[in-house]
């Protein structure tokens, strides 16, 4: 997967370079020397030229070629700041959830950030599945669409406001007004489905990609 990506990237770069060093000058030459109007203008006195001149055309094409050149030279530098191949390779993590009792939760680490895995009680499940209540939420989503098994809610533990870690996973931490999670930084409240109910967060807590490998082993990512 990563290898394909690298191959793809270098091909892209070669493509950009070929545009810069080969195709653009070629187009430039063909257009310049075959355009009849421009040929005509070569014989005109430069002082009486009006409107677009051959020189304007040269400025524009040279400028365009320069822009492509600067762009393709800058791209490797800019792209080097994106996640590296080894960072991308840390894409999945396996978590044993057999020891999480009903009503409690654990925090797993995935891609350097916490993932909340809560074993929900039937009451908690019922509290987030009240008829059409979800339609009135800020980021309307059904609880059913956010879980694969009703008793397990798995969420990226990063507040969608400004990236703090909401409290409420460990026993004794405040769980907010909706019995889910509470972000201490700017006061966002999430319910037991991780949906934002109050505060500045614009979105529900993200549900990462995951699948149950067995009943007690979940693979995140």
């Amino acid at each position: 997967m990563a290898a394909t990506l690298i191959l793809y990237k270098s091909e892209y770069y070669l493509f950009l370079n070929s545009v810069d060093y080969f195709i653009t000058p070629m187009l430039f030459t063909i257009v310049t020397f075959n355009c009849p109007k421009i040929k005509e203008e070569q014989h005109m006195d430069s002082a009486v030229k009006k409107g677009a001149t051959r020189r304007d055309f040269l400025y524009l094409t040279a400028g365009a070629m320069g822009a492509v050149g600067v762009g393709s030279a800058a791209w490797p530098l800019i792209d080097s700041m994106n996640p590296a191949a080894d960072t991308l390779a840390m894409a999945s993590t396996d978590v044993d959830i057999s020891k999480v009792p009903v009503g409690q939760a654990i925090i797993a680490v995935w891609r350097g950030a916490p993932v909340f895995i809560r074993h929900r009680t039937p009451d908690e499940i019922a509290s987030v599945r009240k008829d059409n209540e979800w339609e009135t939420l800020r980021d309307p989503q059904k609880d059913e669409d956010r879980v694969t098994k009703a008793e397990w809610i798995i969420l990226k533990g990063v507040c969608t406001h400004l990236g703090c870690i909401p409290l409420g996973t460990k026993p004794g931490q405040p769980r907010g007004d909706f019995n889910g999670w509470f972000c201490p930084c700017h006061g966002s409240h999430y319910d037991v489905s991780g949906r934002v109910r109050k505060g500045p967060a614009p979105k529900n807590l993200h549900v990462p990609e995951y699948k149950f490998v067995t009943d007690t082993l979940v693979r995140i990512g």
Binding site: M81, N82, P83, A84, T87, R111, G112, A113, L162
Partner: peptide, 28 residues
């Protein structure tokens, strides 16, 4: 984390921009 996450408010490109600023999926 908080200040770089400000850029996630930008529609469409926000999340990609934050990943680019971080060089990963978290501040690391």
């Amino acid at each position: 984390t908080v200040i770089t996450s400000l850029f996630s408010a930008i529609p469409l490109v926000g999340d990609g921009l934050v990943t680019w600023l971080w060089g990963g999926f978290s501040v690391d």
